[in-house]
Amino acid sequence: MSSAPPPQSATREVPPPGLDPEQLRGFLDRERPGLVAGPLTARLIEGGRSNLTYVVSDGTGRWVVRRPPLGHVLATAHDMKREHRVISALHPTAVPVPETVLLCEDDSVLGAPFYVMEFVDGTPYRSAGQLAPLGPERTRAAVLGLVDTLVDLHAVDPAEVGLGDFGRPEGFLDRQLRRWGKQLDASRDRELPGIDELHAGLGRGLPASPAPTVVHGDYRLDNVLIGEDDRIKAVLDWEMSTLGDPLTDLGLLVMYSARLDIPHSPVSTTAAAAGHPAPQELIERYAARSGRDTSAISWYTAFAWFKLAVILEGIHYRYTLGQTVGAGFDRIGELVPVFIEHGLTTLQEG
Rank of each mutant, 00 (worst) to 15 (best):
Q176W: 04
G244P: 02
D189R: 15
V224C: 04
W238N: 02
R190P: 04
K233V: 01
T242R: 03
G205H: 14
E191K: 12
A211S: 15
V224Q: 09
L198N: 08
Y219T: 09
I195Y: 10
L252S: 12
L221P: 12
P212N: 10
L236H: 08
I232P: 01
D196M: 01
G203V: 14
D237V: 02
D229T: 08
V235Q: 08
D237A: 03
I232M: 10
G194P: 07
V235Y: 03
V215R: 05
D245E: 00
V215K: 01
K182I: 00
A211C: 10
G244F: 04
P210L: 11
D249I: 03
H199A: 15
G181T: 11
M240D: 00
G227H: 02
T213N: 07
D229R: 05
I232N: 02
E239T: 04
R178N: 08
I226Y: 05
D196R: 13
P212G: 10
G217Q: 11
A200N: 05
V254L: 12
L206C: 08
L202R: 14
I232G: 03
R178T: 14
A186Q: 15
V224F: 06
L206H: 02
G194S: 06
I195L: 12
A208M: 09
G205R: 15
L192Y: 07
I195Q: 06
L236M: 13
G217K: 13
H216G: 06
S241P: 05
G217I: 09
H216V: 09
D196N: 10
W180L: 06
L192I: 12
L253T: 13
R179M: 12
P210Q: 09
I226R: 05
L198S: 07
G194I: 07
K233I: 00
G181W: 06
R188M: 12
L243T: 00
D189C: 11
G181Y: 00
D237H: 04
D249H: 06
W238D: 03
L177V: 14
K182M: 12
G217L: 10
L253Q: 12
Q183D: 11
W180A: 03
E239V: 02
V214E: 09
G217W: 11
S187G: 12
L198R: 06
A208D: 15
V215T: 13
S187E: 04
L236P: 04
L250D: 03
L243S: 00
L184E: 06
L236A: 04
W238R: 04
W238K: 02
S187L: 00
D218C: 03
I232H: 01
A234S: 09
L225F: 10
R175C: 07
G217E: 07
I195E: 06
L250N: 02
S187Y: 13
P207H: 11
V254M: 03
D185A: 15
R188W: 04
A211N: 08
L250C: 06
W180I: 11
E191F: 03
D218K: 06
K233M: 03
R231T: 13
V214K: 07
L252M: 14
E197P: 05
L202T: 09
L253A: 14
G244Y: 03
